[in-house]
Design a protein around this nucleic acid. Sequence first.
DNA 1: GAGTGGTCTAGACCACCAA
DNA 2: TGGTGGTCTAGACCACTCC
Lengths: 229, 229
Amino acid sequence: MTGPGWDAIRAEVLRRIRARDWRPGEAIPTEAALAAEFGCARATVHRALRDLAEAGVVERRRKAGTRVALQPVRRATLEIPVIRAEVEARGQRHGFRLIEDRDLLPPLPVASRLGVGADRPLRRMFTLHLADGRPFLHEDRWLNPAVLPRPAPDFAAVSVNEWLVTHVPFSAGEMSFAAEGANVREARALGVDLGAPLLVTERVTRTETQAVTLVRLAYAPGHRLQMRL
Amino acid sequence: MTGPGWDAIRAEVLRRIRARDWRPGEAIPTEAALAAEFGCARATVHRALRDLAEAGVVERRRKAGTRVALQPVRRATLEIPVIRAEVEARGQRHGFRLIEDRDLLPPLPVASRLGVGADRPLRRMFTLHLADGRPFLHEDRWLNPAVLPRPAPDFAAVSVNEWLVTHVPFSAGEMSFAAEGANVREARALGVDLGAPLLVTERVTRTETQAVTLVRLAYAPGHRLQMRL
DNA sequence: GAGTGGTCTAGACCACCAA
DNA sequence: TGGTGGTCTAGACCACTCC
């Protein structure tokens, strides 16, 4: 006496939305009604509708009910591995060089984006990542030294990127992409012309209590970032 | 007689992982054991752990149990609105111009990426999207005419992008980003120099039964794509 | 095989919020 | 204030997969 699975219900609801039985903006039946129709528990319907809500297909509010999204917002997810893993996943050998590493007072824009005072020095680091010995990615980082243990790790042996990912707790943050012309450091490190189009990503990460790092990653020309829709 | 909520359990498990009570690669207790410890139903623990698995913090396999992820893969999600909505969200007025629209036999790479025969013409369309009258994005599209109704919509009145999102059922697909130098069409349409760094995204979308479209979007210089971590 | 996560049930109570 | 989704329970069976 067990009804259809939640994925079957998800599929059927999706079918009706695509078939325009339920049109964008319209309310669809309540969980209780659908459970009765499909002959299953309300929890099963709930599981299916929650999944569709996460996918952006429907919008749900208590009391207001469930509506077909007016503009089905597509969400794409990007998996961000450790850079070493990213290189090795391409079947190449990863290496890196710590180009520069010093303490520096952050300029105001950097301090404010990290939410730290501009009167305390941060660790400023430049790293070049290599794939089979060829330039892969240039990393320009401001690191809050407060997140480091004492004594601090040897970032010539383990890349900052990898150390942070494996040792600093799950944190919140933002990330953005843009295309920019290579700056002087990037051009020299990656071996490209000044102003060559590079895919650049900027990330800010924080723990609950403090800023961790602000980093600008510039990929070597031709790099494509793959996402799942 | 109701125990802690699933989010409280999620938080506690996360705390123990961050505190290295449970180290990367190690198995954590079973759902049943955690339910007993926390004094709640197994379903509640399940809800919490499923959430952590989706976030990439733990890995779960039947029989093998739940392990702390060795390399916590970060997932960033990108929301992809209709281009009109994207412009309007910036407080600007959206407009567009259909630059060119004709039927053309696809070159082999295009046909194979879409999974259609190279012997049937596709719709080739170039559209320029405007924000407050200024170039915002150049759209270079191959469209499978089989997805269109008869008579076909008037793409001079509604942008292809918007029509597809609101009329073609939820579909699977891939997406990628890169930085590329502006090509001749893009340079002319966006009003930039040939070879200027542009953020370019390519999408292929399919329904369950057929290919829909392959599109290359080139954003005007300076555009940043924001993601949530 | 047997242990683990994945799912379903029938019921209950709660939180939210539009009417 | 009542209707809706969100959650929790105690139990059951199933599916996968490691041993």
